[in-house]
């Protein structure tokens, strides 16, 4: 049928794992924005939710690292992390293998991607789904963009990946929702965890909300690493969603730096109505 929803959100493990340590006045509006996005996704009645995430060595390592990979499994499980540490109990998710296969076949006309029939979810997918689909009632199709082990795919290729995903979704009979998870600036898993470059984040979000392809695809890894930390490389997931919504603009539901969550907590949606 078509792509029926497109949005982005944060996925940092502290969002659930260190929930009680955040100021409720900052935390609750962010959680409310996540729940709003979840309600919108369910209202869009998707047959599947594609989650474009940046995983953290849950399934892929430097022995065989794909730049892009889409899940093609019957089901998925997570989290790989200690459930008490993440604050999310182990869950099993239905996949949509036949749809995955058709999307992959269609996308291969335009971009290269790997596929995987085994996939364990880490916080990059588990944290968003904890808020967006707590009932687990929508089949999931995971996508990974390598944002951890350089060399990394350039932002322009992430945008093109999103374009190809949109084309494939629009050619499928199913209703498909899409979210990208990750970034924006953060220095996770270092002694600086909690540092956030709000000015850089807001500039990036302005570009994302305007779907400014030239600006979004102009980021270099050297600049991103310097200004936005290792976690900044995850802007690729947001850029892919912008590519899937090319010609459309976005709306920001939440941006709130919450240091104990180690990220500027973000929820935003693309309209999918071309300007």
């Amino acid at each position: 049928m078509a792509l029926v929803y497109a949005g982005v959100c944060s996925h940092a493990p502290g969002i659930t794992g260190r929930a009680e340590r955040a100021d409720p006045q900052l935390r609750e509006p962010f959680y409310a924005a996540m729940h709003r996005m979840g309600a919108e996704i369910r209202a869009a009645r998707p047959d599947a939710l594609v989650v474009v995430a940046a995983e953290h060595f849950a399934n892929f390592f430097m022995d065989n690292m794909p730049a892009y990979c889409m899940g093609m499994a019957d089901h998925y499980e997570g989290p790989i992390e200690d459930p008490d540490w993440l604050g999310i109990a182990p869950r099993r998710f239905a996949g949509a293998p036949a749809l995955s296969r058709r999307l992959i076949e269609a996308m291969m006309a335009d971009v290269d991607l790997a596929y995987a029939e085994e996939w364990q979810f880490d916080h990059g997918i588990m944290v968003p789904l904890h808020f967006l689909l707590p009932e687990g009632d929508v089949p999931i199709i995971p996508v990974n963009i390598n944002c951890q082990g350089p060399p990394l795919t350039p932002p322009a290729r992430a945008y093109a990946f999103g374009r190809a995903l949109r084309k494939a979704c629009d050619a499928a009979p199913e209703r498909i929702a899409l979210i990208g998870t990750g970034g924006i600036s953060h220095w996770p898993a270092t002694p600086d965890s909690g540092k956030i470059n709000e000015a850089w984040d807001r500039e990036f979000l302005d570009r994302w909300l305007a779907n400014d392809r030239v600006a979004l695809t102009g980021y270099t890894d050297e600049e991103t690493w310097r200004e936005a930390g290792q976690g900044g490389f995850e802007i690729r997931t947001f850029i892919a969603v912008a590519g899937a919504a090319e010609g459309c603009v976005g709306e920001l539901y939440c941006y709130e730096p919450i240091p104990i969550f180690a990220v500027g907590c973000t929820v935003a949606r693309m309209s999918l109505v071309s300007m």
């Binding site: 350089p150 220095w187 898993a189 270092t190 002694p191 600086d192 965890s193 909690g194 540092k195 690493w225 930390g229 290792q230 240091p259 104990i260 180690a262």
Partner: peptide, 21 residues
């Protein structure tokens, strides 16, 4: 960092060492 010195390889170096905790 105090005992062994700066991070020797990779992306996960520290910057100012000032985080949330």
């Amino acid at each position: 960092l105090s005992r062994y010195g700066p991070v020797r390889h990779g992306l996960y170096t520290t910057t100012d060492g000032q985080g949330a905790v």
